Amino acid sequence: MKKIIVLLASVFIFQSCDDGDLTLETFNFNNETVQECNDLLYVVNDKEIIILDIPASNFINEATTVGTPRMYTLTSSEQLVYRLYDGSVSSTTICSTIPPATPSTVEEYKAQAGGQIQIITTAIPSVNETTKATSITYTHQIKLINVQFSNGDKIINYEEFLFGNYTSQVNTLSFNFSANNGTQCNANNLYKNNNTQLITFDFPDYLLPTTPGTSSISLDNNNTVTYKMFSGATLTNAEICSPTSPNSPFIIEEEWIATEGTIEIVTTAVTGSNNLPALLYEITFTNIIYRKGNLSFTHDSFDFGEYLTN
């Protein structure tokens, strides 16, 4: 499947005319917007476009370590292409199954093998303070390093060419479990599941209260809250409590762990669904800090909801 990704440039001057003939001196881009269609990423400035075709595996939704970008070495001249058209380029020009008759290509330069693509990935969490839904935006800064373009007769070199930022994905942790009663895998665990997202409270050093009242549990490295986002299949209770979970075809898209914060529990004696005495736990998470690598986000208060013993 053809994958083409476009690179932005930052400071470039364009062209000169000699006796009516166009002479291309350098590419003319100024932090244009990366666009996408059908596995195609591209950047356009009026009549110009730059196209990159490298494996999508280079754009992993995982932040890179500072000072350690991902690097990809170009292996053929077809992987990075510059084109100049005789008219303005639009998404129709790039994305149509059958290319339109116009505009036509005036110039085409292909990058030679050996140049490198540098990718720095960042993940930015953003919390909706009302709903606590938290979006994780993955952005890849793309830069060309020591790339040489050629049209067969002329060569244009770039030691460093700032391509720009490509946003590959935004994952939203919904934190929407309010309608679900809490469930346990064991006596030191509570979780809620909405089929594709899971929040789990593990407290191996504690037991839930056995008498009415108010109590709290402080999170630490042993007593934690974990939030997971899955794809590939629908979560079931059996899958969640399996010691080998997740099993294929489940894919963990996000996993955030909190070891800081407080769990507040209000315990009430009630009559359960079987008309026998039961305990109702109303659980609130306070000042929870979720972390994934060097990233973090905080929820000042989140209503985990209820857990009824029977």
Rank of each mutant, 00 (worst) to 15 (best):
K2G: 12
K3F: 12
I4A: 10
L8K: 09
V11M: 09
I13Q: 14
I13Y: 13
F14T: 12
C17M: 14
C17E: 15
D18P: 01
G20P: 00
L24C: 07
L24Q: 11
E25G: 15
F27L: 10
F29Q: 07
V34R: 06
C37Q: 02
L41A: 13
Y42G: 05
V44E: 04
N45S: 14
D46L: 09
L52H: 08
D53K: 11
A56R: 08
F59S: 02
E62S: 14
A63M: 10
A63W: 01
A63P: 01
T64P: 08
T68P: 06
Y72G: 00
Y72L: 02
T75L: 11
E78L: 12
Q79L: 02
Y82N: 06
V89T: 02
S91A: 15
S91Q: 09
T92C: 11
T93E: 10
I98G: 04
P99Q: 05
P100V: 09
T102H: 07
P103D: 06
P103I: 06
V106N: 07
E107L: 13
K110E: 14
A111V: 06
Q112N: 12
G115D: 08
Q116K: 13
A123Y: 00
P125V: 05
N128T: 01
N128R: 00
E129I: 13
T130D: 14
S135V: 08
S135A: 15
I136W: 10
T137G: 07
H140D: 09
H140K: 02
N146M: 10
Q148T: 15
G152I: 05
G152K: 05
D153G: 15
Y158M: 03
E159P: 10
E159M: 11
L162A: 14
F163W: 07
Y166T: 01
T167V: 15
Q169F: 09
V170I: 15
V170D: 10
V170R: 04
S178H: 09
N180W: 00
G182F: 04
N186H: 08
N186C: 10
L190C: 03
Y191V: 01
N193E: 11
N195I: 08
Q197A: 05
I199S: 07
T200L: 09
F201Y: 13
P204F: 11
D205A: 09
D205S: 13
L208N: 04
P212V: 03
G213N: 00
S215H: 01
S218C: 09
Y227H: 06
Y227A: 01
K228F: 11
M229C: 07
F230A: 03
F230Y: 15
S231H: 01
A233N: 15
E239N: 12
S242M: 03
P243T: 05
T244M: 09
S245F: 15
S248H: 03
I252K: 04
E254V: 02
W256P: 04
E260V: 12
G261C: 06
T262M: 08
I263L: 08
T267R: 05
A269V: 06
G272Y: 03
G272D: 06
G272I: 02
S273V: 12
L276D: 14
P277Q: 02
P277A: 06
L279R: 00
E282S: 14
I283M: 05
T284A: 12
F285D: 05
F285A: 08
S296L: 10
F297A: 06
H299G: 08
D300W: 06
D300P: 00
S301L: 09
D303M: 09
G305S: 01
T309W: 02
